[in-house]
Design a protein around this nucleic acid. Structure first.
Lengths: 350, 350
DNA sequence: CTGTTAGCGCGTTCAT
DNA sequence: ATGAACGCGCTAACAG
């Protein structure tokens, strides 16, 4: 129960026998200080264990030195993968001396609000939709923000994203080369009414084209939340027995593997799977899957860095990075049983 | 590129024709306002789209309305499970109208610092050791804090923890009833020089006693980081062939399952496993494991709530909650092959 | 190179 | 029931 009242620069100024502004400038280095007074100030700082009050500083400087990260983490729709991005973001903000405020709010006005109220200097958004209202509001208010993902119009916006199209093409080619002629793409239906979710939309479109190009039948399956996805997948696999392989995005590999087991179909003997997942998730999944690594930690770091750079110099062209994934062949990738020889038809569940 | 300068209560006061203090009181409700002026103020607020500036408010009220969460998330030692707690913490802070600042700092002075600089009102710590220096410093400075986990002395400290001892006892009994006479306990070595990590120490001690009580040989294995743990476990299983079952804490189940597969030992035919993990992790692991659920989301929520309650009324006895886990029998729990009939010896690897 | 001073936006005491 | 004024801790003109 020590001193509740913390020491201020006024205390330092008094003790060092200088003006408060001198202390302030000595701390910020924004103007030259004689070696002597600087020493006296530093001594006073050390003796009194002074730490600049972040709030006072934020009010005066109009900068909280804090980044707000928006990502969905409601308990019901908890996506373990989402949290991996956080590690990268935290690494970047911490290295830059920035605070990291995490918000799980779904209010589209919240990102702009947090900045307008001075709580944060900028906002980093996750689960970005093609026409994201949060983006629109941030744009309208002229506040700095960045994206992990990207939307329809990204002009002037720093972002980092993963090339899902390429990943799907790589995966599809691999599966086709293994002999598969009927392949499903599994993706999750993200939160709420976000039918507009970028990766989902783009992946679906790309997959359709790829199926056409490579000459296989492609099925697109949008999985809902936990209890239902199992039945969805179960019904699909029973209904479409010619489908012998799947590409999974997000964590849809989990229910898929369960259903396959329950149906008595063994991976990779009876069914092949290529999963696009973060290596940290791959690590804990057993048996080893064939995957395309989604570098989530890197993405978090790069996204945060791009935003911080943009904040430091808004006149410069913002960083816009697209990351790529490599195929990572695991134990489940051996050739499947021969695909059916019936006529190939391109279908789409929706 | 709208107005950079946000509207303040002075603007509201002017527009409503009242004093700034009246606006302040109208907003906080800390003194009665006539219906008429209140209406005028509310109208001005709506018309100007006023939002109180959080930083100005924090400086004046000496409260940032923010909780700082400290948890380890360096990219090298990323534990997916840790992030699940965050969902619960975020739920609680958000419901209480608090901000959530996330820090991955390892500096033992940082928690107290963040509060002293006004950045946060309180700190919630994860990965607490028995003699945690962060706790000591927070205590010394008299700042409010709470724990997810607990340390040697918890007097006056709100915390939530999981009864690992009981979980291990439940798991051990289950395995012994299946016929196992030689059981290993796998745990991870947490970051840095934290040999003092509470759950690890307590689990080990408890396990030793349980082995004695239930009459089986118990081995304790402390796994290091990703690349090494595999070899560690591999050497252990080869060296101790009589060990036919394991209890895994944290995500040690992952390397264990890999090693078992590579050794050609099938679960549950040749080896039984009971894992203490969060259900969100269990969901993505395949095949279904026998587990004891670690209610990480709940723990995060309860820990944050306990801390917020303590903050609201420091004179009240702080909430100290201990959660328990139930056995969750999955596909891997079928009886193993008969255990060896040789003499039982209680050993410990360390 | 250094001191003086006016805010930053809001809470709150003291008057009325 | 309402106003006026001061202060929270710090930054940044503006003087010298």
């Amino acid at each position: 129960m020590e001193p509740k009242r913390s020491v201020t620069i006024a205390d330092i100024a008094l003790r060092a026998g200088v003006a408060v502004s001198t202390v302030s400038y000595a701390l910020s280095g924004k103007r030259s200080i004689s070696a002597e007074t600087r020493a006296r100030i530093e001594q006073a700082v050390a003796e009194l264990d002074f730490k600049p009050h972040a709030v006072g500083r934020a009010l005066a400087s109009r900068s909280s030195h804090t980044m707000a990260l928006f990502f969905p983490a409601s308990r019901n729709t908890l996506q373990v993968e989402n949290h991996i991005f956080l590690a990268g973001v935290a690494e970047a903000t911490s290295k830059a001396g920035y605070g990291l405020l995490v918000s799980t709010s779904h209010d589209p006005a919240e990102p702009a609000s947090l900045i307008e109220t001075g709580t944060a200097d900028c906002a980093l958004l996750m689960e970005v939709t093609l026409h994201d209202e949060r983006v629109a509001r941030l744009r309208a208010s002229g506040r700095p923000f960045g994206l992990i993902g990207h939307s329809a119009d990204n002009s002037g916006v720093p972002f980092v994203d993963f090339d899902f199209e390429e990943a799907i093409r790589t995966a599809a080619r691999h599966l086709r080369d293994l002999g598969h002629r009927h392949i499903a793409l599994l993706n999750r239906q993200p939160e709420r009414r976000r039918r507009d979710y970028g990766p989902a939309v783009r992946s679906r479109t790309a997959f359709r084209g790829i199926a056409r190009d490579l000459g296989f039948a492609g099925e697109h399956l949008l999985c809902s939340a936990a209890p239902y996805q199992y039945r969805q997948i179960d019904e699909f696999l029973r209904g479409v027995p010619t489908c012998t392989a799947a590409i999974t995005l997000s964590s849809t590999f989990a229910p898929l593997l369960r259903v396959l087991t329950d149906l008595g179909r063994e991976v990779p003997r009876d069914f092949s799977v290529v999963s696009v997942i973060a290596p940290e998730i791959r690590e804990i999944v057993h048996p080893a899957l064939t995957t395309i690594d989604l570098p989530a930690v890197e993405m978090g770091r790069l996204g945060a860095e791009a935003l911080l750079n943009h904040l430091a110099d808004p006149s410069k062209k913002p960083g816009q990075v697209m990351l790529h994934g490599e195929l990572n062949i695991g134990a489940t990738s051996a050739p499947p049983r021969a695909a059916t020889a019936t006529e190939l038809v391109l279908t789409d569940t929706r």
